[in-house]
Computed example of a mutant assay.
Amino acid sequence: MPSITAPTLIVWGKQDRILPVAHAHIAAKALPNARLHIFDPCGHHPHLERPKEFNALVLEFLANE
Rank of each mutant, 00 (worst) to 15 (best):
G13L: 06
D40Y: 01
H23I: 07
G43E: 08
N55E: 04
D40I: 00
A27T: 03
P20A: 07
L48P: 01
N33F: 02
K52G: 13
D16L: 01
V11D: 00
V11T: 13
I4K: 02
H25E: 14
I4V: 15
N33I: 01
P51R: 08
K14G: 14
V21L: 05
I26Y: 01
P32R: 11
D16Q: 02
A28V: 02
R35W: 04
L31M: 04
H47N: 14
D40H: 07
P20D: 10
R50E: 10
V11P: 02
D40G: 05
I10W: 01
T5K: 14
D40S: 13
L31W: 03
T8C: 12
H25R: 15
R17W: 07
L31D: 09
M1A: 15
P32G: 14
E60W: 00
V21G: 06
D40A: 14
D16I: 00
L57N: 09
L36W: 09
R35P: 03
Q15G: 05
R17S: 12
H37P: 00
R50V: 08
I10F: 06
H47Q: 13
G43V: 02
A6P: 00
I4S: 11
A34V: 06
K14N: 13
R35H: 14
F54E: 00
L19Y: 08
I26F: 01
H45P: 00
P46R: 04
E53S: 14
W12E: 03
F61A: 09
L9V: 05
K14L: 06
A30Q: 14
P20S: 08
C42A: 11
P51D: 05
I38Y: 04
E49G: 11
A6G: 01
R50Q: 14
A63M: 02
V11I: 14
F61N: 08
I18F: 12
L62E: 04
A6V: 09
I10L: 15
I26M: 11
L36C: 12
Q15A: 13
